[in-house]
Amino acid sequence: MGLFRSTIDRVRRGLARTAGSLGGGLRSVLAGRSLDEDLIEEIEAMLIGADVGVEATAAIVDDLRADWKAGRISTGEEVLDHLKSSLKNRWEDVDRRIAVAPEAPTVILVVGVNGVGKTTSVAKIAHSLREEGRSVLLAAADTFRAGAVAQLSIWSERLGVSIVKGAQGSDPASVAYDAADAALARKVDVLLVDTAGRLHNQGDLMRQLVKIRDVIRKKIPGAPHEVLLVLDATSGQNGLVQARSFEEAVDITGVFLSKLDGTARGGIVVAIRDQLSVPVKLVGVGERPEDVEPFDPATFIDAIFE
């Protein structure tokens, strides 16, 4: 099901800077060299520099070292292929499509810590769905942050998508409930619920999120069909902690990796994949509503190492 168009070139362009710093470096480091401990150390440093994390990096490097000792690789060029395939293997056979409910509406709940770009990501998903000819309803369930409802309202106008909003400071769960109600009544294809940013270590706010989820589920059995954690590509190792906490609270089904158009490499998704097996589904590569792409590990990794 092609819910999102895959335009590899665009991802490449978005990742060009990402690639520029790491991949370019790696390529030049590897060229014409044969594998030794020094080189392995350099590779290790690059992976860590990409926020892959100490543990995941150690696993990748150990793997590399083992194959080297076993005589399977020796030249720099072979190292590049090896790294690519070892990373690709981590992502094989995962369904990265956005779930679709057997019976409309499909409900997508968007969650994350403060400032990762949830509202912009919601706008991007709404845009893509509209492009596909699906009807979309937005729920502005971030009633906490100043201006959040106004922000999503502006997107709803720009995108020509209807919106259900509550008053600032009102109960977000009741907004979600009303939105679920409206989604059923208006027979929309997809309900997109934007939630307030919350630090994953704030117990009360996490419980509030559970309540939002449960309220939606009560109204629409089986919903939400997709719980997307928006993760900032610039985040460090705390990204893994975030993913784990949101996973425990609301069973996230996928990651939306935002802000991949900067110089950050978003390597933390490797660790998340290793430890939580929650797939990255979408990546954000700019500020405009069309700047969203399905996550394609092969492209992602190619772009990182090329």
């Binding site: 710093s21 860590i48 926020d51 810590v113 610039t234 460090g236 190792q237 110089t263 933390i268």
Partner: peptide, 12 residues
């Protein structure tokens, strides 16, 4: 600066 930023904090 976001206290949760990773390696890229330096370049920005």
């Amino acid at each position: 600066v976001d206290a949760m930023t990773g390696q890229d904090a330096v370049s920005s």
